[in-house]
Design a binder for these strands. Structure first.
Lengths: 139, 139
DNA sequence: ATGGTTTTGACAATCATTATCAATAGTGAT
DNA sequence: ATCACTATTGATAATGATTGTCAAAACCAT
């Protein structure tokens, strides 16, 4: 049976109040900064529960850490700027259908998919187009 | 200047000869099993170099490990059994087009994408369907 | 073969995450 | 409100992947 603890609510609130993705470590730090004496292990557990119950999205950052995000509107994917980290939520009905179909064609079941698009957002694209900086002329 | 060592070729060969994705640890184990006394750190370095030079793709497995694959035959995606590791290569023209379009709609450029489908292959699905164990009737 | 420099490899260090386990605090019943 | 029961917490150790270190060895050009 699941019990109701202030720790779990604190994690849920903190995640809700976070703009983009956040790692367990960062969330723990943020909570401590807010005065919560919550333990690190508890943050990991709460995030894991949230992800398991579908209330949070979990994916792996390029640095190899697990990062979480409040997930209200069901299943969706992300468009992530690899320079500034800007994240845009995108619906992907086509991809959903495609993934299920392809999985089915090969006899696979319980198909989950990792569909994330990395690129340069408009701002960063513009900056990249106007370098005006000396490039390192390494071999 | 990059030098040519048998270790680096061994890693490249092993990666080429691997069907789907493989982690650095697994590749190291495989090399050892083949008789190579190559060191673990060297495998990590070689894989990192391969990825940096574009000869290998690197992404994060759901378990949080970095997994690599040889990147020879152009761009394609994978259908991976999360139980037995079976990997099926799949073409994804629709997804390619979708990713480019979605990125463009949001002003993103240089869009790359990570599209991999994890599921249970036919064999593992069958095994999972006949558990012969009591399920926990949770809410 | 020689020299200069890169690479290797064993191991320590680091970092994120999970397990451990006694103490604590919900929950439901009295 | 109190009690007992048990899920949860939290400090810390343990784990496991990855990276840094640095002397020794290997590679390449001469």
């Amino acid at each position: 049976m699941k019990r109701n603890t202030w720790q779990r609510e604190a994690v849920r609130d903190a995640l809700d109040g976070t703009e983009g993705f956040i790692s367990a470590q960062a969330l723990h730090s943020a909570l401590h900064a807010s005065g919560s004496p919550i333990g690190l292990a508890t943050v990991y557990r709460a995030l894991g529960d949230l992800a398991a119950s579908g209330d949070a999205d979990c994916l792996q950052s390029p640095e190899g850490e697990a990062i979480y995000r409040a997930c209200s509107t069901g299943h969706h994917h992300h468009l992530i700027c690899r320079n500034c980290g800007l994240t845009v939520e995108i619906a992907a009905d086509e991809v959903e259908a495609w993934a299920q179909r392809v999985a089915g064609e090969h006899g696979f079941t319980s198909a989950a998919h990792v569909v994330d698009v990395f690129g340069l957002c408009a701002d960063c694209s513009r900056q990249a187009a106007e370098p005006a900086s000396a490039e390192s002329a390494s071999a």
